[in-house]
């Protein structure tokens, strides 16, 4: 009988410890979380969603989009990018020759091949990234050596990893990104691409609506199921309604009918456009691209 009681007590302690560690601990540490600020700026992060997008999150939840889509970008680490911002009076060929003349420097020995390869077919378009390295010192030395009057090169801290390389986001997802999600839906299966930054990648609401109605109409060969039940097919009036979808041949309904997104579909699209986890944070830093390009 004694052993029975002590075994029970031990189990109780064990289960309590797990509850304390993995529920109470994170609650204590994370649930008081407030907005943070974007790195080197006063902008608050994350931004509140609009009312429509907030409703749209409920459509996303109700239809279980998270069963196929994650909202979580992963990252393996960091690298330094050396990017040419201005060329001054140099012609690309001259700059190439100039950089090649620097290859005798012993510090650059390990990266000469990479630099040469990235400049080989370069036509002079700017900004031009010509080295990505994990070594801060080499990058610093290179910038120092190529900076001559008129030429400006910059260092950028960038996140690396396959998710980043696929263009799913400029950095890993951070805890702060989920602050205004209710419920938080990170997802567990990537049957479809990650959506943490779909609002940056596909900012056109009509594209989103068309994709939801008939994924194959905008992504040939798509295996995403269509969500036609979020749309209404109705008889067209004399003039087509302004909100009717413009669908490609083969996806449009029979003549005389038009496809109107329901309120749910529009909210869902607004939610998708609100998904942009692309600001540098203290916990997930990177240097934003300095040109106008996203």
């Amino acid at each position: 009988m004694k052993t029975g009681f002590s075994v029970f007590l031990a189990a109780f302690v064990a289960l309590g410890a797990s509850c304390f560690g993995l529920v109470y601990g994170p609650l204590k540490q994370l649930s008081g979380a407030k907005e943070t600020t974007v790195l080197q700026s006063d902008a608050k992060w994350p931004q509140q969603r609009t009312g429509e997008a907030t409703l749209g999150e409920q459509v996303y939840r109700a239809n279980g989009c998270a069963a196929c889509h994650t909202e979580q970008v992963r990252q393996d680490g960091f690298a330094i990018e050396v990017t040419l911002a201005t060329l001054g009076t140099y012609k690309p060929e001259d700059f190439r020759a100039f950089v090649h003349s620097l290859f005798i420097m012993p510090e650059l020995e390990s990266v000469t091949n990479a630099i040469a390869a990235s400049l080989r077919d370069w036509k002079g378009d700017l900004p031009k990234t010509f080295l990505v390295t994990a070594d801060k010192e080499i990058a610093g030395k290179l910038v120092q050596s190529v900076t001559v009057p008129g030429v400006k090169a910059q260092l950028r801290l960038v996140a690396i990893g396959p998710d980043i390389a696929r263009g799913w986001g400029p950095r890993r997802s951070a805890a702060a990104d989920y602050l205004y999600d209710q419920p938080v839906q990170p997802g567990g299966l990537r049957a479809g691409p990650d959506l943490a930054n779909i609002g940056v990648r596909a900012p056109d609401v009509n594209w989103q609506l068309g994709h939801l109605y008939a994924p194959k109409s905008v992504v040939p060969g798509s295996t995403m199921p269509a969500f036609r039940y979020l749309f209404e097919v109705r008889k067209a009036g004399a003039a087509p309604a302004p909100e009717a979808l413009k669908l490609k041949e083969g996806f449009a309904p029979t003549a005389g009918f038009e496809v109107i997104p329901t309120a749910e579909a529009r909210e869902l699209a607004a939610y998708l456009l609100s998904l942009r986890a692309n600001a540098p944070l203290l916990e997930a830093p990177f240097t934003p691209v300095f040109s106008g390009k996203p």
Partner: peptide, 26 residues
């Protein structure tokens, strides 16, 4: 565990942010 998780996640005022996912994984 079922009681705890429901108490926190399926209630009127769930904790904000990613801690929801932590409790879900737990």
């Amino acid at each position: 565990s079922y009681g705890t998780a429901n108490l926190f996640l399926v209630c009127n005022h769930p904790p904000r942010g990613v801690v929801q996912a932590v409790i879900g994984w737990w």
